[in-house]
Simulated scan of single mutants.
Amino acid sequence: MEVVLSRRTVNRLYENKAQMNSISMHLGESVAIARTVGHLSKSAEVMKLVNNLMKAPEMAVTMQEFSKEMTKAGVIEEFVNDAVDTALDSEDIEEEIDEEVDKVLTAIAGETAAQLPEAVRKEKVKQSAPTAEEDEAIAEGADDEEEMEAIRARLAKVRS
Rank of each mutant, 00 (worst) to 15 (best):
V125Q: 07
E99T: 03
M63E: 06
E69N: 05
E100L: 10
Q115C: 09
V37G: 03
S67R: 07
N52F: 04
E29V: 06
A132V: 15
A156D: 02
T71C: 01
E78T: 13
R159S: 07
V104E: 11
R121I: 05
F79P: 00
F66H: 11
M1C: 04
A44S: 13
E118F: 14
Q115F: 09
E123K: 15
N21C: 06
I138V: 13
E118Q: 14
A129W: 10
A119V: 08
A156R: 05
E146W: 13
S43D: 06
E65W: 09
P117N: 15
V31L: 10
A113T: 04
V80C: 02
P57G: 01
L49D: 03
E118M: 14
E91K: 14
V120R: 09
T62A: 05
R12P: 00
D144F: 06
E95F: 08
V4S: 04
A73G: 03
N81Y: 01
A119Q: 09
A150C: 03
V158W: 15
K17Y: 13
L105A: 08
E94S: 13
I138S: 09
E2Y: 07
R35A: 02
E99D: 08
E96P: 01
K68H: 09
A34L: 12
E78I: 12
A44Y: 12
